[in-house]
Design a protein around this nucleic acid. Structure first.
Lengths: 187, 187
DNA sequence: ACTATAACTAACCGATCGTTTAGTTAATTT
DNA sequence: AAATTAACTAAACGATCGGTTAGTTATAGT
C-alpha cells in the first residue's frame, strides 16, 4: 500500500471523548477536536466521517470504559447492595478532579432529550432502559419485595443517577459518599 | 415623542424564556428568538442589547415566575415538610407536558457549569447556595438534629433537585410523586 | 400640517460552524 | 529507482452564527 496512519484511531477517540465529556456535543467544535485529537480535519473526516461520527465513536469508547463496572453489577449476587457498589464504582470512573464532568451518558441524555437527533436519543433511551432492567433484576434478587415496590425503587435509583452525576461533577468525595449512602437508606 | 413599541418587553421575554427553557442557551439561535418572540432582530437588540441580555432577562422572568413558591417555602413553619411541598410546587410549575423541560435554572446550571461565562455561572452558584441556605433553615426548624446531619440532608436535597428536574422532564405524574416521597423518606 | 424622533424592515457585517477538496508528502510495491 | 497510493496540509466551501446599520414608516409635539 502507501503511507501509514500517523495516529491510532482508538487513541484520538479517547481524547475526543474527554472533550465531549467536558463540554458536551454542541459546545465542542471541529477546531477544538483538531487541537485535542492532535490531527487534521481531513484525518478526522477520513476516519470518522463527521463530527457526529466522532461523537458516536466517543460514546462507544465511553461505554467500553465503563463496561467492566456494568459487568460487575450484572454478575453480582449481592442484590440491591450491588447497585450501591455500582454507584461507588461510577464515581471512581467519572469523578476526575480538574476534569470533573459527571457521567458522559447522563450529560448526553440531558443535552439530547429535546433534540431532533433520533440516533443519539434512541441510544440514550436504550441505555436508561437497560440500566433500569438491571436495577429491577438486582432489586428482585435477594428479597421478597412486591413488584410495585421494585418498580418504584428502580425509577428512584435511575433518577438518583442524575443527582450522582451532578455530585461527581462538583462535590467533594465526602459529599458524594453521603449522597450515595442517603440514597440507599430508602432501599 | 415618536412611534410607540409594537410589543411589550415582558411578553416577548416570556416567549424567549420558553425557548431557552426547551432548548438551552447555545441551542437557541437569534433566528429562533425572532420567530418565537415575534419581533425583529433590531427590536431584540434595541430592548435587550444582546442574546446574552435576552437570556439574563429570561432568567429574571423565570425567577419571578417561581418567586411565589420560594416565598411560600421561606415563610412556612412546617420545617422539612415545607421542602417537600416546595418540591411538589416546583413540579406544578415546571412539569408542562408537551412542553416538558424540567427546571430552567437546573438546566442552566448544568449547561454552564463548565463554561467561561462567569456572569451566569455566578448566578447559578448563588441560586444553589441560597437554596441550600433555605433548606438548612427549614431542616433546623422543627427538630433537634445535629448540624452535621442537617448539612448532609441539605446537600442530599440539593442534589435530589437534579433528579426531580429529570423526572419532571420525562416521567409521568405518578413517577414524579414516587420520587419525591422516596426522597423524603430519608429526611 | 410640518417636523422631529423613535420603532420598524431588511439587507448586510465579519466570524465561525461543519464539511470538502485541491495539492503535497511519504511509504509501499514492482 | 520509478510508479502507485494513501495520509497528510492547508485553503476554501456554503450556511449559519451573533450583531449592526442604512433606509423606511408611523406617531408624537409644535
Amino acid at each position: 500500500m502507501a503511507r501509514q496512519k500517523q495516529y491510532i484511531e482508538a487513541e484520538v477517540i479517547e481524547k475526543a471523548m474527554g472533550l465531549f465529556w467536558r463540554n458536551g456535543y454542541e459546545n465542542t467544535s471541529m477546531q477544538m477536536l483538531e487541537k485535542e485529537m492532535g490531527i487534521n480535519k481531513f484525518s478526522i473526516y477520513a476516519s470518522f466521517g463527521s463530527k457526529h461520527g466522532v461523537f458516536l465513536e466517543s460514546l462507544k469508547s465511553y461505554k467500553k470504559k465503563i463496561s467492566s463496572i456494568f459487568e460487575k453489577l450484572q454478575n453480582s449476587t449481592k442484590g440491591a447492595e450491588a447497585i450501591k457498589e455500582f454507584f461507588y464504582d461510577s464515581v471512581d470512573v467519572c469523578h476526575k478532579p480538574g476534569n470533573h464532568s459527571g457521567c458522559l451518558l447522563t450529560n448526553t441524555y440531558n443535552e439530547f432529550i429535546e433534540s431532533n437527533d433520533q440516533v443519539i436519543k434512541e441510544q440514550m433511551t436504550t441505555f436508561m432502559a437497560d440500566l433500569k432492567t438491571i436495577f429491577i433484576e438486582k432489586l428482585s434478587g435477594n428479597t421478597n419485595k412486591d413488584k410495585q415496590t421494585i418498580q418504584k425503587q428502580a425509577n428512584f435509583l435511575l433518577l438518583a443517577k442524575h443527582g450522582l452525576a451532578a455530585a461527581s461533577r462538583v462535590n467533594n468525595p465526602k459529599e458524594i459518599e453521603d449522597y450515595i449512602e442517603m440514597t440507599f437508606q430508602v432501599i
